[in-house]
Write a protein that binds this DNA or RNA. Structure first.
Lengths: 243, 243
DNA sequence: CGCCCTCTTGATCTCCTTCAATGACAGTGG
DNA sequence: CCACTGTCATTGAAGGAGATCAAGAGGGCG
């Protein structure tokens, strides 16, 4: 009944029916998880990764000091925990923000894919590189942007990731994150997130109704955002042909 | 005469003679580059990546505001510009810090590798994921660590990356970066880097003689560092077998 | 010698944090 | 139906880490 959404991969290349089938059957049984469930803890030994089918999931990292940083808010279609495969233990803690559905994929299964499916493996590489790009952008930003700029970019980023999932209408979408989480994502305190959102609202750039957020002035937000959105190539020339 | 150093890959898996040969012959002709040469500019169309054979190279990103952030200081053995292959244009600007030697690898060549060498492709994935991990760590840090902690971690990171290259003796190594560059790498100003280094020196954690830097008290620095170093698994179970 | 680059140091400023208190709202149980 | 509790959002006041501005010192190199 639940299927891993392939919009991420459809945006990268033409998928044959066989490839669609392979990707769809990659994950094991779908697991329903309640809100606030932590299903991977930083430091745990891991044996596979998780496909996010439905809902929002937090990836957070705890520092030696005990401080906890939310590294990314994951949306359906994301692969969770793939960096952990190279060091064997979980890099991050995965916690559901909303009710969510995930599917497990063992590293062994990924290894088989790598061994037999060069084209899908290449698409996996693209997905990982895109994540890397998004980290580079985040890093560049936290180094040099103000709270207002960061927040603008963050909201635009969510907007563009939610759109292909059909979760945006009229530039308005549901934001299940607390201001505290947003602060962790951007390296700010919840207090300052609050003031900054208020600021954006008073400038007429956004509006809020409970947890519903509307981007009133997208061009204005874009002008504020220090980094334009990234789009991956469709069918890059180096991509291996269908087998 | 110049060969791409494979220490990076030797640390990940047992390489067959054939694999060593393949990796060594991956790059085209070695190119010598003087100090301060920019050989890839952000936004340019790219047709391949660069293997760094010798010397230090900066990867920097320019924001819409015009601010320029150094994303990473690359050392011999690194692959430069691989994120650009998924978007077709250069993500970052590559500039030599010291005299350097690089070798070009077309994306086409990489695609052939992906199509025919699942095991080496997997090792490439590991290398990319490790880069991603390092970005996650940086991000967590800039969000939550003080300038002193960041600097401690940065110096320890350089130490551990330079050691396998034989560039460290007695915990002492050459640091060809200006304080300004270090500031860009850590999201600080050169002024503050200066004060912080001075601080570390007065605490007896490091000492400096010109561009030569000595880590006097490594355990002390580690205690200060908010993030322990990451080590990839050797021959992870999911790695495809030799063909 | 003079120029430029880098390091160094001081003074001031500001964005964001920290601490603290209040309000809005939903859920829970009597 | 209404206290009771916990979670979030909101707002104020004070403090600090680091930025910015400015100027001097050392050192390599034409």
């Amino acid at each position: 009944m639940w299927r891993y959404p392939l919009n991420r991969f459809h945006a990268l290349a033409n998928l044959s029916a066989r490839e669609v089938e392979l990707l769809s059957s990659l994950g094991g049984a779908a697991v329903k998880r309640p809100r606030r469930e932590t299903f991977q803890r930083q430091g745990d030994v891991t044996t596979g990764l998780h496909l996010l089918i439905e809902g929002w999931v937090n990836s957070s990292v705890t520092l030696a000091s005990g401080k906890c940083l939310v590294q990314k808010a994951h949306l359906p279609g994301d692969m969770l925990g793939s960096p952990s495969m190279v060091i064997g233990t979980a890099v991050d803690t995965l916690t559901t923000i909303t009710d969510a559905v995930t599917a497990f994929v063992s590293y062994e299964r990924m290894g088989q894919l790598f061994a037999t499916e060069p084209r899908l493996t290449s698409l996996f590489i693209v997905a990982v590189q895109m994540e890397r790009l998004s980290l580079i952008d985040m890093l560049a930003m936290t180094g040099a942007a103000s709270a207002k700029e960061s927040l603008a970019r963050f909201l635009l980023d969510l907007h563009s990731r939610l759109t292909p999932l059909g979760a945006v209408s009229n530039n308005s979408f549901d934001l299940p994150l607390t201001q505290e989480m947003i602060g962790d994502l951007l390296g700010l305190t919840s207090v300052h997130v609050n003031r900054t959102m208020r600021d954006l609202e008073q400038q007429g750039l956004i509006s809020r109704q409970g947890h519903r957020l509307t981007l009133v002035d997208v061009p204005g937000l874009r002008r504020l955002s220090p980094i334009p959105p990234r789009t991956p190539l469709f069918e890059p020339g180096w991509l291996p042909a269908h087998t």
